[in-house]
Design a protein around this nucleic acid. Structure first.
Length: 564
RNA sequence: UGGGGCGUAGCCAAAUGGUAAGGCAGCGGCCUUUGGAGCCGCCAUUUGUAGGUUCGAGUCCUACCGCCCCAGCCA
């Protein structure tokens, strides 16, 4: 393969970075950062930003910092910092020693604010929030200047230092940039730089009674860290003029460039922190790590791997358009990953007892089963077969339709890795419910092939009753019944569209004995059913397993179509 | 009715004036000891609409239409 691929298509950001390197901007350096606000759990949308920033740094021989944007105490907690660090690491990215906090720059930012006051570019405003709102104008109306806008430098300096000293009450004064109250760009109408907030900060404690706002902190933090490309989501487009204004006004030599990209939307879920919080607080899910949540913790517990999530993020593209990725695309990423890497195992979700009448009582046959048809190096294991086994209830029909290839009265099927069996009798209880099947097996077909060359259409998974390991299996489905619960009509509440069947608990599944003692986090394919992983709720005597995703099921699709 | 961003298939997305990639989903078929996986094939005479420039337009120009963002002392 050639090393350079000039025709390889890149996204618009990589194109910009490539140009900047070629033109020698920033000395050809590339430095990015992922700047989370530590007030909640990271979700799949953040994964897009994380993957982008770290990947670009890696691809262009640059660096990527992890910086916590902790300018709003109260909303921020140390536990979120710890959780975010854990999640980014889990995703597989490394920021080396470049872990930063905007709060580390509070002293520098204060000095910068002072400098702007001295240059006549900032002033202390005594208006309260209501007055400011009344004077800010509207979308089509210019705002009006604050009556305090023309205070002299000395007075501003004095007032600002007393704000810092804690002399004033919250809300009584703010520091504002002096730009243009008539600007059609709302963010340029004398934006607030500092507010008084007497809240303990998770890192600086009670040393600051004033805190900078995002707009006065982000660009400078980028500049301090010599970030070259500051990548953020599209809703910050309108903040770019202000970002540049502060960086210019403060005279930074190396100017970071803000570039915006569209954020991720996913069908059948919500991705705003506010909505996710409602799901948790309202008890609609078990917590931030509920396997139905689109949080990284939820996805991890569900059985998603970092590789699958990274593939997803890299594969969905990068533009400035509004977009909604189908859940199927996410599922594709984990199926792809698990198909190649997950060990196969047999598990029966809804057991139906089968007695092999001609198999000797008390005898156990140890059969060879490969651990993966995709990877011979994963080896094989022994699976015990005996006279009484369980098969899946769905794998038997008393009156099977034409395209049903599984077991039925008088039909012959293969038990995976074992024998061909033929159904000879159906036992029902008083209610007509099928409680047990009787079959005969063909000893000549041991391993699953008939020496006479006869074929069977169906292959069933099974578990020996005497050897089975019971388990609780949690089957997950889409959290919502509508594609875009986050974008409903006025007056509609996304909570009303929760899927009542998003979690289905199967109490008494039966797994093959090799699953005994499987540890949390381990993931398997239950042949013919789907990918499952062991949940941390498991105890020594009680296995709990989560369904990550089903296998593609063409029979289910067919059956559904016939029904219509 | 201000400013900004964005319109390519069901969902993503490439194509940087040279004749609409690719993926997901879907639909056929082959293969199969997972109805899995894999493999093969089909799936935009046309890029929001209408004009214009050009030998040639998704790309350039004009007008219109639609969607999204901005009026927190949140980020």
């Amino acid at each position: 393969m050639s090393t350079d691929e000039p025709n390889e298509s890149r996204d618009f950001i990589r194109a910009i970075v490539t140009e900047d390197i070629a033109s020698g901007t920033n000395g050809g350096q590339v430095a990015t950062r992922f700047p989370p606000h530590p007030n909640g759990a990271l979700h799949i949308g953040h994964a897009k930003a994380i993957t982008l920033n770290f990947s670009i740094a890696e691809e262009f021989g640059g660096t990527c910092n992890l910086r916590f944007d902790d300018t709003n105490p109260g909303a921020e907690e140390q536990e979120h910092v710890d959780a975010i660090i854990e999640d980014v690491k889990w995703l597989g990215f490394d920021w080396g020693d470049r872990l930063h906090f905007t709060s580390d720059y509070f002293e520098s930012l204060y000095a910068m604010a002072t400098r702007l006051i001295e240059k006549g570019l900032a002033f202390v405003d005594d208006q309260d929030a209501q007055q400011m709102r009344a004077n800010q104008g509207g979308l089509t109306e210019p705002g009006t200047n604050s009556p305090f806008r023309e205070r002299n430098v000395e007075e501003n300096l004095d007032l600002f230092s007393r704000m810092r000293a804690g002399e004033f009450d919250e809300g009584s004064r703010v520091l504002r940039a002096k730009i243009d109250m008539a600007s059609p760009v709302l963010t340029l109408r004398d934006p607030i730089m500092y507010r008084i907030q007497k809240t303990r900060h998770h890192r600086t404690g009670d040393t600051w009674p004033i805190y900078p706002l995002y707009d006065f902190a982000h660009g400078q933090s980028d500049a301090i860290e010599e970030i070259t490309h500051s990548l953020c989501s599209i809703e910050f487009v309108g903040h770019r003029p202000l970002y540049d204004w502060f960086v210019d006004a403060l005279g930074f030599e190396k100017k970071p460039r803000q570039i915006e990209f569209s954020r991720l939307n996913l069908t059948y879920t919500v991705l705003s922190k506010r909505n996710l919080k409602r799901l948790v607080d309202g008890g609609h899910v078990s917590g931030w790590d509920d396997p139905r949540m689109p949080t990284l913790r939820g996805l991890r517990r569900r059985g998603y791997t970092p590789e699958a999530i990274r593939e997803f993020c890299a594969g969905i593209g990068l533009t400035k358009r509004d977009n909604t990725i189908e859940l199927a695309r996410l599922e594709h990423s984990i199926r792809q990953d698990r198909n190649v890497r997950a060990a196969r195992v047999m598990g029966v979700l809804r057991p139906l007892k089968v007695v092999i009448d001609n198999f000797p009582e008390g005898e156990v046959d140890e059969l060879d089963a490969i651990n993966s048809p995709e990877d011979a190096s994963m080896g094989s294991r022994k699976v015990p077969f005996s006279r009484e086994i369980y098969i899946e209830r769905d794998d038997f029909m008393e009156d099977p339709p034409k395209k049903f290839f599984r077991l039925g009265p008088g039909r012959e099927v293969r038990l995976r890795y074992a024998y061909f069996i033929t159904c000879t009798d159906v036992v029902k209880d008083a209610d007509g419910e099928i409680v047990e099947l009787h079959c005969t097996y063909d000893p000549e077909t041991r391993g699953g092939d008939a020496p006479d060359g006869r074929k069977v259409k169906g292959t069933l998974h099974w578990v020996s009753i005497a050897h089975a390991v019971p388990a609780e299996v949690r089957l997950y489905n889409a959290l919502f019944t509508v594609e875009q619960p986050g974008a409903l009509e006025e007056g509609e509440d996304f909570i009303d569209h929760l899927n009542p069947d998003s979690l289905e608990v199967v109490e008494n599944a039966q797994l093959e004995p090799s699953m005994a003692g499987a540890s949390p986090g381990h993931s398997y394919q239950f042949e013919r059913i789907g990918y499952f992983c062991v949940d941390p709720d498991s105890a020594a005597d009680r296995l709990v397993v989560n369904r990550t995703v089903t296998l593609r099921d063409t029979w289910a699709k067919l059956a559904k179509k016939e029904k219509k």
